[in-house]
Design a protein around this nucleic acid. Structure first.
Length: 420
RNA sequence: GCCAGGUUAGCCAAGUGGAACGGCGGCCGUCUCGAAAACGGCUACGCGCAAGCGUGCAGGGGUUCGAAUCCCUUACCUGGCGCCA
């Protein structure tokens, strides 16, 4: 949610953002309902004032023994009028908030304006792309040859885009998780394993309702949704709270499975474990003071970069364009890792600053002293590692001539071996 | 799942149909060379330039001229019973 003051005072700023994001949105309707809303608040407040006055009158008359029937009649009249005004106001408020909750976030000035991902800007490249003197395989063939993944039976049991991990790939997956947690704990992140299902209100705090259908699984007959990432549960973790300023920034390492419908992805990455309905992810999530959030954003990116440098996976950093970013983010970097079997860089990390957008929806505020005005804080999130994709990269980049996989050095002690 | 008791402001907490007691913590002021103590004010949210007005007693609904208070309902918390890895 945006600051309502911007809707009132600077709608042009929102209009520019909508254009840059290429998002359809009826801003005029929002501005109009906002104005109506304010007018109605004034009117109902006035009516309530009258009501309070008459209530006091009745109370006093009763004490002094005066006749209260004229006041009762007046009160009845006022209550009727008030009920009408209140229901009208309720309607308008609902219309307003439905609209207000679907406006995307503002865009940071450094974000390139463009109509799709072709406007993304490459910020840097790290590492040397591995060269092979033999014909290489992709992760699907490698994992089939080494009996590491069973896609057919997963399809039978759960459907397409599911998988059974098997044998040493289970251990490699756990090793990645274990290493990632050690890596962030070392940097003083607090480890959190969140609920994997959260209620609607929490989910709506973290994402825009429109995106529900495409991404989020719902539990039948329960007010519960499977998290698409621990970000959803971590953001809502501090909802309705006022955090002490001295505790900021709060840096969390969330570890959880992620569940995604991938509804719009028909035909893309159809095979293998690159694009799947369920994967494990270790996430950086930060609650920060507004004046520090851009610094934190860069910091999170560099933490993620360091992780891939340690894993010796070549990558490049992309600054996403206005139309390619998520709606809650004001600025997003992606890290794309080299995947030898596809001869391409593919997205593995998304690092976003959401400013106060989620904090407003979730009412997460802070202040330094208890009598001070509260302020919305800023939330940021970045993948550290989404394991399934990094497994793909490791399998493809570290494959050997005779069909095995060399374990990256930093993972060897977790695996207890150096080759699969 | 059943039964009982709860949910009031940053924290604690009173209030069982008629204007939200009080305390703690915090901020400002008076006093002081300075501080402490004492005293006074402020300390949830909305609208408003402001004065001010309104809202707010877990959420939603109802009864009533009037609801923190009575009724229904949902969520959560604490016990007890049941079930259970």
């Amino acid at each position: 949610m945006l600051d309502p003051k911007i809707i009132k005072d600077n709608p042009q700023r929102i209009r520019d953002m909508l254009k840059a994001r290429a998002v359809e949105f009826n801003l005029d309707e929002l501005v109009e309902s906002d104005q109506k809303r304010r007018d109605l608040i004034l009117k109902t407040d006035e009516m309530r004032k009258k009501k309070n006055q008459v209530a006091i009158e009745i109370s006093q008359k009763k004490k002094s023994g005066d006749d209260i029937s004229p006041s009762l009649a007046e009160m009845k009249n006022i209550s009727g009028e008030l009920a009408k005004l209140e229901s009208l106001q309720g309607e308008i408020e609902k219309k307003y908030s439905n609209l207000a909750l679907t406006i995307p976030n503002l865009i940071h000035e450094s974000v390139p304006i463009g109509k799709d991902e072709t406007a993304n800007i490459e910020i840097k490249k790290w590492g040397t792309i591995p060269k092979f003197d033999f014909k290489i395989n992709d992760h699907i063939d490698i994992s089939a040859n080494l009996d590491l993944v069973d896609l057919e039976r997963a399809a039978k049991v759960a459907g397409a885009r599911f998988y059974y991990l098997k044998n040493d790939l289970v251990r490699l997956n756990q090793s990645l998780i274990h290493y990632a947690l050690d890596f962030l704990a070392e940097k003083n992140y607090s480890l959190v394993q969140p609920p994997y299902m959260i209620n609607r209100q929490s989910m709506e705090g973290a994402i825009i309702a429109d995106d529900f259908e495409e991404v989020i699984y719902k539990i039948d007959n329960e007010d519960l949704y499977m998290i698409g990432t621990s970000e959803h549960a971590m953001a809502a973790m501090r909802s309705d709270e006022i955090i002490e300023g001295k505790d900021l920034p709060l840096r969390f390492a969330g570890v959880s499975p992620c569940f995604r419908k991938e509804a719009g992805a028909h035909g893309r990455d159809q095979k293998g474990i690159f694009r799947v309905h369920q994967f494990d992810k270790i996430e950086q999530f930060v609650f920060a003071r507004p004046e520090e959030s851009w610094k934190e954003h860069e910091r999170m990116l560099s933490v993620a970069e360091e992780f891939y440098q340690k894993l010796e996976i070549p990558y490049k950093v992309m600054l996403l364009s206005s139309a390619d970013m998520g709606k809650v983010s004001a600025k997003t970097y992606d890290i794309e890792a080299w995947m030898a079997g596809q001869n391409a860089y593919r997205e593995i990390v998304s690092c976003s600053n959401c400013l106060d957008y989620q904090a407003r929806r979730l009412k997460i505020r802070f202040r330094d002293k208890t009598n001070e005005e509260t302020q919305y804080l800023h939330t940021l999130n970045s993948t550290l590692v989404a394991t399934s994709r990094v497994l793909v990269s490791i399998m493809e980049n570290f494959q050997t001539n005779d069909g095995h996989i060399v374990i990256p050095k930093v993972l060897q002690k977790y695996m207890g071996k150096n080759i699969i």
